[in-house]
């Protein structure tokens, strides 16, 4: 079976600085993969390459078997056009650390915007679908509220509804709980966990080690632009092989 996400020999530079130095990993359908590692190890950049918020310089990213971002023209790697990029981005759903809800729209309209303007769905249908997902993340009662009237945890749940309503092949979470007050983290993790249990394919960049251990099928440990170790959470967290991971786990709080 084709994996939902396949990354092959991925390289990414910021100017002179190479932040990804050859990444290979796959995510199968329904799998939940957590990427852990120290800040600066390249985990957020890797995630952003998966939906083309970052360009990459070498290697391939395949979403549902389709190579994204580039195609070959006479043996040359050429960046694809804006419309194609937009279409490929919509194959993934992204949840940001800072929520990035549209502040001038209600929670409902945050969710329907992509449905009506990208998917071309008629508004009544889009509203129905948005309501379904807002209900699913426990935000239906607040559908007419602006983001400024919502707590951080509530905003992030709306952001999750906004991304998942587009029916992406895979959901990407970029440190989705890092900007939240400690007492709000739980509600967002609970939402993510329940989506995972329903079989949603997910890639999470996270600092929540306990959460990564509990929900993931696979954990990827990154170190200095490379994957230092990957495998099932039980093995990585209980019997880390590399000294780097052992040291990292010692400094991480559970």
């Amino acid at each position: 079976m084709t994996p939902i996400v396949e990354v092959r020999d991925l390289h990414k530079r910021f100017g002179e600085l190479e932040v990804l130095k050859g990444i290979d990993f796959t995510v199968a359908e329904g799998e939940v993969v957590s990427i852990i590692g120290a800040s600066g190890s390249g985990k957020t950049t890797l995630l952003r390459c998966l939906n083309l918020l970052e360009e990459f310089h070498r290697g391939d990213v395949l979403i549902g078997g389709e190579a994204i971002g580039y195609h070959l023209r006479r043996g040359q790697r050429v960046r694809i056009g804006e419309r194609e990029v937009a279409r490929q981005r919509a194959m993934t759903g992204m949840v940001f650390q800072a929520f990035n809800l549209f502040p001038h729209m209600s929670a409902l309209d945050n969710v329907t915007l992509g449905l009506t303007k990208v998917r071309g769905m008629p508004r009544p249908q889009a509203v129905e679908l948005a309501d379904h997902w807002l209900d699913r993340v426990g935000m239906l009662k607040r559908r007419d509220h602006r983001p400024s009237q919502l707590s951080g945890g509530q905003q992030q749940r709306v952001a999750i509804a906004r991304a998942i309503a587009m029916s992406p092949k895979v959901m990407l979470f970029d440190e989705a709980t890092s900007a939240l007050d400690p007492e709000r983290v739980g509600e967002v993790l609970e939402t993510i966990r329940s989506l995972a249990q329903e079989g949603m394919t997910m890639v999470l960049v996270t600092h929540e080690m306990r959460f990564a251990r509990d929900v993931s099928d696979k954990v990827v440990f990154m170190e200095d632009g490379r994957i230092a170790e990957q495998g099932p959470p039980q093995r990585l967290f209980l019997n880390p092989e590399s000294p780097r991971l052992q040291a990292f786990l010692k400094t991480s709080s559970f």
């Binding site: 939906n51 993934t92 992204m94 587009m166």
Partner: peptide, 8 residues
């Protein structure tokens, strides 16, 4: 980025 992420 949020706009891009939903495919606009």
């Amino acid at each position: 980025e949020a706009g891009r992420a939903i495919g606009l």
